[in-house]
Every structure is written in structure tokens, then in C-alpha cells.
Design a protein around this nucleic acid. Structure first.
Lengths: 251, 251
DNA sequence: TTACATTGCGTCACAATAACACATTAAAGG
DNA sequence: CCTTTAATGTGTTATTGTGACGCAATGTAA
């Protein structure tokens, strides 16, 4: 896969890559999709290169699609990372040999790279981590237990989470991360997990329903301990409207 | 200048550039610093390329510095633009000939480019547009009267302004755009201009002073018609604190 | 049947906000 | 020199939003 790209590297933007921070929500945990080559010792964000004949947004969708298999999800560019030394010493001679990349072509990889960061919000239940090949493990990892990552991927991940926290105050989030039907406590847990902060149940209910993007279903969650919570779904039309106009007007 | 870069293009990131949207405030107008080559018919954003041995943020500072001469101003990356056709047909044969760039080297310029957008906030009164060379006009232009721009620079400018509008709700703005001493009405005009919306005088005063970043000076503006308004300055320490923590907590 | 954790709904005090009234100031004009 | 005019400075009030709670309702488990 990588070798194919290197061997045809004239078809790709040189020194430019894409990295995706893919968020999912499960078991009250905010998960991040990470990959690890079997022979590698560190995990990394799923990433890819940019075909010269593809918009960068399209290339990002390709990356996301290749790892998760889902389409039409929330995907947004959040920052571009370009410190000089960010990928220094990433591909060593051994790795290039292992990948059967000839030395001359290897230079395409070892040069200084700038990477464009995208973050995605996906429905955990609809995704089965999709290993691109047998040399690679793909796994959902709780964002609080992310191990050491390659290069500056930790910084990229942190920035993505920061961005998500800010966006939470500007637009509704949840449509992309939860199943179609969900409960208010579930939605609240999502908010609490992203913000890393406890919220008051009753005030949350009031605020979230006042936005006017929720539809209360005539149905309760079953098989739960204690009182069964009501199920809700998003009113997609109003949701999109609020997404466009933003939540807080500020001034 | 451009020719120097092309002739030594191995020292620059290929297919990657930086464009700066430089904002200033003067005469109750939000101004943008634009440039135009004498022989060109369209204006453009000041931009530049990225030396392989420079962080992208550093390269952006270089661009800003080359056009305005000021240092230590507010500069922030806001988006990266990478549509496939964004710079198609930008450099035609004639232009390359005019610039005395040989055909082979010209390919470095005509290839598909991705550009990283930065926006800057500068004190208009401290800047004199600084033409890099005699082939180029540099001018402050009211953002409402920006003429047709090259490539997708209009899109970049719009996105920068959008970002600025959003940031206005997240952090204090003004320190970088106004003189050291200023009046509340001036600050309000700035906000109104950016937001393109009238604000209530009295409510604005209350909100802006409640933030706690302003110092009321024992001095009034002189030589003005009607009642002389009081002068204020920013309390830099508190300003920076609010900058870091944000204005609205949201949830 | 009871205990208990969790959900649903409501209350209250207080803060923030929008809309507006009125006094103050200083230049300009007769 | 006095009045007009167009700004600024300082309130006031009604409404809405927010944070911190109380309490009843629900459904499982002991």
C-alpha cells in the first residue's frame, strides 16, 4: 500500500499528508481510532497522502473511509501541522528496507512533511475497525488511555479534542456520535466525557431540550436497571439549521 | 524575489504556500492589506512559500513581516485550502517569460498548490504598507470594497472573516487592532464592523467593562465634536488571561 | 414489600440581557 | 451668549437564562 504510493509518488502531493482523528462514543467513553503496524512499537493516527488530482477534503474522506468503511459522516479540517522536525527520523533505513522501497524513492518519504489534521465523528456501533492490510492493527482506544504515539500525533490528537470542546459550545454535537435513538443521560454522558466535567442532570435536560433539536419518542429504553429513561432522536432538519447558525450568538 | 525562490526551489516545500489575511482598523472601517503586481489586473492576498527548514508558523511570520514591517502581532492559522483546481491556469507562459523563469523550473510554480491561511490583526497606525519591490502595490482596502481577487483568495478572505467573527465571541479582540489608548465608542465600532451589526451603546459598555480587561484612564479624547469620550487602555495581564481561558464557558 | 438508584419535573434566587429614559458634555451657529 | 445638536455617561425595568436544589415517579433487586 505505502510502497504503491511511493513507487508512483509523482501522483501525490510531495511533503504533504493528512491525519485523521476519528472519534467514537461507547460505554460512556470517548474513543479514538488508532492504528499500529505489527512491527512498530508506537500507535499512530490513521493518515494518508493526497493524490494530485484530489481535493484535500476528498483525500481526507478517502482516509476515513478506508479505515471505517462508513460514508457521509461528520468530517472537519481543524489545523495544519508543520514544525520542521516533526517527522525527522521517522522512516529509518531499516523500515525502508523492510518495505522494499529503494533508497532513491525513499527520499520522497523522508523529506520534511506538513500534515493537515481532520477530525471525524462517527457512530461507534456502525463501525468495525477496518484494517487496511494484515500488517496493521486498527483499534478503538479510550481517549484517556491513549498510549505513546508516533511523531507529533499526540499534539494533533490534543488539538482535535480542544477543537471539539470549543465546537461543543458553538454547535450541537451528538447526531454523529450516538445511535439514532438515545436517552438524555446518554447524551449528557457524551457531553461530560468530551468536556471532562460533571453537569447537572436537570439543567442539562432543560438546556438541551430548549435548543429544539430533540424529538421525544413514545418509547423507553428497555433492559436497564432502575427507571427506564425515555428515548429521543434528533430532528435532523432543526439540527442542521442550528448547526449552520450556531448556538450562542455572543454579541 | 519570486525568481530567486524558483531558482532555488529545492529549498522550499513544493506545492505548498502561505497566504495571510492582514486586518487593520481605520476610519471605522475594517481594512485588509492587499497587493497587486503592476502588470496584473487582479489583487491578491500577501503570500509566500515555506522554506524546508522553517516551521510553517515561522514562514507565516516572515510573510507578515515582509509586508507590514511589524513584529509580535496577533497571527493565527485558520484553515488550509486545497481544491485541485485552485491554482489552475494561474501562471501562464507569458508571466513565466516576463519573470525570466525557464520553462523547466516554471513547472515548480504551475503544479497544484495547497495553501495554508493565516490571519493577522495589526495596529493600522503603526503600519505603512511596505512594498517588497517596485513591481508591486501594497494597499489597505476596506473589506467591504475588496475588488476581484486572484484564484480562491476571495474564499480565503471570507473564511478568515468568518473565523474572526466566531473568535470575537470566544476571546477579546481589540488589543491588536486599536491604538494603545482608545474610546469605548471606537471599540464598539470595531465590533460592529466585524460583526456587521449595530449594537446598543449602553449594553455594550456594560458587557465590555464587565469582562474586566479595560482600564479607564483619567483622560478624555480631545478635538472631537460633541461630548469628549473617555479614554481607555487594555489591562494586558487580564487581557491575556481572558485570551487564554476564553469568554463564554457555554456548558 | 421494601430499599434504592435513577429518571422526570418543578422551584427559587440570582445573574445576564434587551430595551429604553434621562442627564451631561462640548462644539457649532445665530 | 444662549440655544441647538449630537454625541457620551449613567441609570431603570422587564424578561430571560442559569445554577443549585427538592421531591415525586419508576422499575430493578434484595
Amino acid at each position: 500500500m505505502l510502497k504503491d504510493i511511493i513507487d508512483n509518488n509523482e501522483n501525490y502531493q510531495p511533503g504533504l499528508s493528512i491525519d485523521c482523528v476519528i472519534f467514537g462514543f461507547h460505554d460512556n467513553q470517548l474513543k479514538v481510532l488508532l492504528i499500529k503496524a505489527h512491527r512498530a512499537d508506537k500507535w499512530s493516527l490513521p493518515g494518508g497522502f493526497i493524490p494530485v488530482d484530489q481535493d484535500i477534503d476528498t483525500a481526507a474522506i478517502t482516509v476515513l473511509n478506508g479505515r471505517t468503511g462508513v460514508e457521509g459522516v461528520f468530517l472537519r479540517q481543524f489545523a495544519t501541522f508543520g514544525k520542521v522536525k516533526r517527522n525527522e527520523q521517522h522512516f529509518d533505513k531499516k523500515t525502508l528496507e523492510y518495505l522494499q522501497i529503494e533508497e532513491e524513492k525513499g527520499k520522497w518519504l523522508t523529506r520534511r512533511f506538513v500534515t493537515i489534521g481532520y477530525y471525524a465523528l462517527v457512530d461507534f456501533s456502525k463501525i468495525l475497525p477496518n484494517p487496511v492490510n494484515k500488517h496493521e492493527i486498527v483499534e478503538w482506544i479510550d481517549h484517556k488511555e491513549v498510549p505513546e504515539l508516533i511523531l507529533d500525533h499526540r499534539e494533533i490528537l490534543d488539538k482535535a479534542l480542544d477543537t471539539l470542546r470549543v465546537e461543543l459550545n458553538l454547535m450541537p454535537i451528538g447526531y454523529n456520535l450516538l445511535s439514532e435513538k438515545f436517552t438524555i443521560p446518554e447524551l449528557q454522558k457524551l457531553y461530560e466525557t468530551i468536556l471532562d466535567k460533571k453537569l447537572d442532570r436537570r439543567n442539562f435536560l432543560r438546556k438541551i431540550t430548549n435548543i429544539g433539536i430533540l424529538t421525544k419518542l413514545d418509547e423507553k429504553k428497555s433492559n436497564v436497571a432502575h427507571k427506564a429513561p425515555n428515548l429521543y432522536s434528533f430532528d435532523k432538519e432543526k439540527y442542521d439549521e442550528v448547526l449552520k447558525n450556531g448556538l450562542n450568538q455572543g454579541w
